[in-house]
Design a protein around this nucleic acid. Sequence first.
DNA 1: CTCCTTATTTGGGGGCTTATGATAAGCACG
DNA 2: CGTGCTTATCATAAGCCCCCAAATAAGGAG
Lengths: 406, 406
Amino acid sequence: MKRTSRDIRVANRFEVLRHIIASATVSRQQIASDTGLSLATVSNLVGELLELGLLVEVGYQDSGGGRPRGLVAINPNGGVLVGIDVAETYVHVELFDPALTVLASVEEELHPEENRPDQVVAHVVSSVESALATAGVGHDRVLGAGISVPGQVDREGGVSVFAPNWDWHDVPLRSLLARSLDMPLYLDNPLRACVVAELWFGAGRGRDDVVVVNLGTGVGAGLAFGGALYRGATNSAGEWGHTTLVVDGRLCHCGSRGCVETYVGAPGIMQNLRDLAPNSPFLHTDDQTATIEALARGVADGDPVAAKVVTETARYLGVAVADLINLVNPEVVVLSSWVAGLLGDALLAEVRAVVGRHALRRPLAATEITLCRIAGNPVSLGAATFALERFLSAIGTNAGGLVRQT
Amino acid sequence: MKRTSRDIRVANRFEVLRHIIASATVSRQQIASDTGLSLATVSNLVGELLELGLLVEVGYQDSGGGRPRGLVAINPNGGVLVGIDVAETYVHVELFDPALTVLASVEEELHPEENRPDQVVAHVVSSVESALATAGVGHDRVLGAGISVPGQVDREGGVSVFAPNWDWHDVPLRSLLARSLDMPLYLDNPLRACVVAELWFGAGRGRDDVVVVNLGTGVGAGLAFGGALYRGATNSAGEWGHTTLVVDGRLCHCGSRGCVETYVGAPGIMQNLRDLAPNSPFLHTDDQTATIEALARGVADGDPVAAKVVTETARYLGVAVADLINLVNPEVVVLSSWVAGLLGDALLAEVRAVVGRHALRRPLAATEITLCRIAGNPVSLGAATFALERFLSAIGTNAGGLVRQT
DNA sequence: CTCCTTATTTGGGGGCTTATGATAAGCACG
DNA sequence: CGTGCTTATCATAAGCCCCCAAATAAGGAG
């Protein structure tokens, strides 16, 4: 954990850029007073980013009698970031400008039998090419690409160490993709991508200590401490789905019993429904998405069974979240991923109530619980943000190929 | 979370001093190669600490034909650190030299009715005075004092925000003590003191991500990330005792049910015993310590009931620790505090077995589980270490009153 | 006493920050 | 229109930090 003065520079660069993105258009003065950095440093950093073409000057703002403040904004033509979300059933690729606004979006389905690395790689390559074509952008304009794959990754090596759903072991994804995709490529997994997305663009903005609870088919808890993603000793922090919630509870595919996942993951919620109403019309056997969608509609329509399922799910989720709050004492807990997206406010309200009963008063008072409010796909956004972070870190090391465009 | 280049200096100072303490006597060369810092920086830092009198040169080491390496060590007369452990039933004060070797140790009992702040403060003051007298040290030699009190503290303000066992609310301990104790005073709680002690002198040395599981009457989990104590948003991270382990389980004094504490805290272990053998001779009603001690002897003597109690306790503790490992992915988990000390290896072995069955393979492989191996009282050691850290942080800010002694 | 080897210190360069002054750009007013 | 005032930005300097490399220090061997 060696720190150098360059890390400070990089952190400040993140801070300034993040601020400009958030404000759309802003003066140096404003940045300085908001970030606590000195005017000189801000001016210096802004100058550097202008030089690189990542920012543009966009006019002036009255200053009440003196020289007007120069306003800067992200240069929409400053380059392109690629965010790739590889999931079990699809490959989703998005192109972003440096403000992380979506320029193009492409999704290709992955059929169940298409799970060999070369097949997945082919889909990724064709999606990226097609997205670039749609947006009319050349490879030379790409600042970097981030790719998220499920499971355990070795991000330095660019290797998918283990992907449970496809039984991949040590697949050298970066090398495989590098043959066809000529751009810097950064690998990580969806949980961490979501955390980074929240830190830059969501509820984690400006917060130090953040927990992102991912509710999908599986569940996990992404962590950020001190304003930065926390990875743990071997980049596997956040394995929260197999936390024991009920001793001798439901059998989990991990072999254990009573895991959080078996109660609040999508299949767990289906089981909650089955336990309450075995013949419910909401139940679409073998289709998690359809079931959760049906439940969401049911809740919206005031169906009592649907409401009961949400309450029951929140009973488990709330306890588990309260445990997290007690342990980590975060500033904010974000409920993310598609299940949270569908069940939305109904789930949030119930979870808040349960947490209120189970968490300790003091940590609870410091914690906001919220839904993910990021528009679009937070995973591809986060993946692209990884690429942006890496690009920003490389500035000044004469390694980063700078893209000049005005 | 503003970082400056001075933070780097302070971190390196910590690193170097920690290394010298660990090595007892060591050359600059060795420090440099072990820490990865340059010779120049090490020389610079060592020079600074020599100047302050915290280190002394203690001879030379042959270098194979050239100039011999100068050896440095902690100056045993370089000043005195005070560590104060205020617990429910006693006040324990220890004096340390800058290598954190104990110079004197004093304990005064706190009677159950002596729980007013002024009474506790009086005991602290008299203990410190008596310790200083025993060691024959004047106030002027004290570099700083750290004090640990149970409960929630505001360490900047030096206020005990909430101490549940005595029902203290917002007691301004630092101000109260400052009237009689003329030394820099740092306040925190035992959980965090233990973590700092482990980071400097225990299993956490040189590790980035550490969990210290405290097993006493209550239980908690101290956390360190990136080599530094993690506090959370409001200095209350680590409240792990009230994590729900068994839904609808044993009633806890916090009002909830099934908290970890009710199974693995000392009263919980007594209950485990009662459940197995209601009339066991190990059971000393109303005396936790005696009961746990009796159990420990029973285990040593091969008593089957005692062994069963340990197994049963480990069944709960192991699951809870496995959950921690999955979530945090630490390099080491330390079992600390008096219950762990008494039950020792028997408990450790059982916990390891249970964790092996419940934790995920990859995080588990990266984690060592160990008992606290710090001799003496880790809380007063940690409290004194807080004082040392603060003293080291203040060097160069012309704020720290430097003590020059050779 | 000189040479050789190795350790330590010192000076310089480059990074970062903040502080300070110079310059730029607007407004107001005579 | 010019002068003075205000405010913004930029350039330079100064203070830390680190590291590198040359100079100096301190032994031993011949």
